[in-house]
Amino acid sequence: MNAWIAASAVLLVAGLGPALVVGSRGDGIARLVGLQLASPVAVFALMAFSVGVNQPSYLIVPLVLAVLNVVGTLVYTRLLGPRA
């Protein structure tokens, strides 16, 4: 196990774990904050795994997740906010 795979494991446990807890408490917008925290942590964990196993082609997954995170979160803010 090299440093990058260890970093991926740390991100999954100490980063994604609290994010999932935040995303499971409170009302809709409070849960959305948990999703906002979880998305970049997941992107970093996937990037660290890609670097750790020396497979650059795996980077397409965090790239797609980073782009979809923007659209998905904006849709949630639109749906969870009060209607005009």
């Binding site: 917008i29 959305l32 992107v43 990037m47 980077l59 980073a66 923007v70 979160t73 906010g81």
Partner: peptide, 23 residues
């Protein structure tokens, strides 16, 4: 990837904060 995250992160946080403030 990190540039996309760095540019979109504050925008999403502002959008979420605005939705919370409206609520």
């Amino acid at each position: 990837i990190v540039v996309i995250m760095a540019l979109s992160g504050p925008v999403l946080e502002i959008a979420t904060g605005r939705a919370e403030a409206q609520q």
